[in-house]
Amino acid sequence: MSKLNSNVKFGVGIKGMGYYVPDKVITNFDLMKDIETTDEWIREKIGIVERRRAKDTETLTDLAVEAGIRAINNANLKPEDIDLILLSRVVPDHINPPTSCRVQYRLGAVNSGAFDIDAGGCPGSIYSLSIGANFISSGSYKNILVICGDILSRSFLDYKDRNSCCFFGDGAAAVVLSRVPLGKGIQTFYLKTDGSKYDKIMVKAGGIETPLTVENINNRDLRYLRMDNKATWEFATSVFPESIRYVTEEAGYKLSDIDLLLSHQANINIIKTSMKVLGIDMSKTYTTIEKYGNTVGASLLITLCEAYEKGKISNDSKIALVSFGSGVGWGAMFMKWVGRDDFI
Rank of each mutant, 00 (worst) to 15 (best):
L4H: 03
N5C: 09
I14D: 02
K15Y: 03
D23W: 05
K24S: 12
N28R: 11
D30M: 01
R43C: 11
I48T: 11
V49F: 06
E50I: 03
R53K: 12
D56Q: 13
T61W: 07
A67T: 08
G68P: 02
I69H: 07
A71I: 12
N73H: 11
A75N: 15
L77A: 15
L87C: 00
V91Y: 12
P92M: 13
D93W: 12
V103N: 09
G108H: 03
S112P: 01
A114H: 01
D116H: 07
I117Y: 01
C122Q: 05
P123T: 12
I126V: 14
I126K: 15
S128C: 15
I136N: 04
G139Q: 01
S140C: 05
L152V: 09
R154Y: 11
S155R: 14
F156A: 13
F156V: 14
C165D: 04
C166W: 05
F168W: 04
G171A: 12
A174Q: 12
V175K: 11
K184A: 05
I186A: 02
G195I: 07
Y198N: 13
K200D: 12
M202Y: 07
E209Y: 09
P211W: 15
N219T: 14
R220W: 06
R226Y: 05
D228V: 09
D228A: 10
A231V: 14
F235D: 02
E242N: 12
E242W: 10
R245G: 10
Y246G: 09
T248L: 06
E249A: 15
G252T: 01
S256M: 08
D257E: 09
D259T: 14
L260S: 08
S263M: 13
Q265P: 00
N269V: 05
T273P: 03
K276D: 07
D281F: 14
S283F: 08
T285P: 13
I289G: 02
I289S: 02
K291E: 07
Y292P: 02
G293M: 01
T295N: 01
A298E: 00
A298G: 04
L300G: 02
T303S: 04
C305K: 11
E306V: 05
K312C: 10
L321D: 04
L321H: 10
G325T: 04
S326I: 03
G327E: 06
W330R: 03
A332Q: 14
M333H: 06
F334K: 00
D342I: 08
F343P: 01
